[in-house]
């Protein structure tokens, strides 16, 4: 029996006490494997694991498990994401077995954006179980070796269980309790929503540390560099549960023509530097959406390279 829950690279890095660094890659809206491989290539060697999104924002894409396998073949460690919107508990459990059988070792459990956002708003949703119950499902399968109905699993899947936390959504005071609930349900690591409001995040982390949550679970702080003022404004206004302070928008505006993206990266690096020192933060989750080619540069500047070999 190994000392690890899953033996994934991410788990080993965290367990060894290294400051973890994860990336993200959205599967293509088609079967364009080459494009996916190209995006993945930028991340290779820069991060410990790569989140593979699951019909993100309710837009149909190549399935997350399939794209995860492509990454695996390319020598990257996937963090397979699963949402509860599109599957019932039968499909959920069988997909968990399937991904494990193919060598996937990390899984991020999410409720999923409502389909009304996406490109098939007419769809019927599932939500048989919620993200909390999904965490519990993966844990039950791994640690109890049983399905949700109590029946034994012939070779249980050993996955490193991830969950998301949005410190900025409302009701704010409840968010840290919900985090605690996810940890109690079985989350091994947490990746937060993109952070822009550092004051609020500091407060959130302080409360998490006061509750001792950082000792029960690895918390990775979410970072998404701003590419433009337009993106910052869009996130501030249009994305529910996103907190972009006006001061940041101002700072980006002040950067001047052609320099906004650079300023966005600079802010991200400052954030990462602070996270390295912040009590309770075990790593950073970098979501450079459609900006994979900038990841090597960001990783370098943030002093995250080389990644530890564990």
């Amino acid at each position: 029996m190994s000392e690890y829950k899953s033996g994934s690279n991410l788990e080993k890095v965290l367990k060894a006490g290294h400051f973890a660094f994860t990336g993200e890659c959205g599967p293509p809206q088609g079967a364009n494997v080459e494009h996916l491989k190209e995006k993945a290539a930028h991340l290779k060697g820069c991060v410990d694991a790569v989140n593979v999104t699951d019909n993100q924002t309710a837009v149909v894409r190549m399935s997350s498990w399939a794209a995860s396998l492509v990454l695996l073949q390319e020598g990257l460690e996937p963090n397979f994401q699963m949402v509860c919107r599109d599957r019932n508990r039968l499909a959920i459990q069988s997909d968990i077995l399937g991904v494990y059988a193919h060598g996937i070792r990390n899984m991020l459990c999410l409720s999923g954006d409502h389909q009304r956002f996406g490109n098939h708003p007419e769809a019927k949703n599932v939500f048989d179980i919620d993200s909390m119950q999904l965490i519990y499902t993966v844990k039950t399968m791994r640690d109890e070796g049983t399905f949700l109905n109590g029946q034994d699993i012939d070779v249980p899947p050993k996955l490193f269980i991830g969950a998301a936390s949005n410190p900025f959504a409302e009701p704010f005071e409840f968010r840290v309790y919900r985090l605690a609930k996810k940890i109690a349900a079985g989350a091994d690591f947490i990746q937060t929503q993109c952070i822009y409001n550092m004051d609020r995040f500091r407060e959130f982390m302080k409360r998490a540390v006061d509750m001792g949550l950082h000792e029960k679970c690895y918390i990775l702080a979410g970072v998404t560099p701003m590419k433009s003022v337009g993106m910052a404004r869009y996130m501030a206004k249009q994305v529910p549960g996103m907190d972009v302070p006006a001061s940041l928008i101002k700072r980006l505006q002040g950067a001047g023509k052609g320099k906004v993206a650079g300023e966005g990266i600079k802010f991200a690096i400052e954030q990462i530097e602070e996270f390295k020192e912040m009590e309770g933060v075990a790593g950073v989750h970098l979501m450079a959406i459609e900006w994979e080619h900038r990841v090597p540069e960001i990783s370098e500047l943030a002093g995250m390279l080389p990644r530890p070999k564990v």
């Binding site: 409502h114 009304r116 119950q133 549960g241």
Partner: peptide, 26 residues
């Protein structure tokens, strides 16, 4: 709840409204 969550609220809740629409209470 738009997602019938039994362990809510999800991360999309903002200003007391559900992520699906400003006309829907969370």
């Amino acid at each position: 709840c738009s997602k019938s969550l039994l362990n809510g609220p999800c991360g999309g809740s903002s200003n007391g409204k559900c992520e699906i629409s400003k006309d829907v209470d969370c």
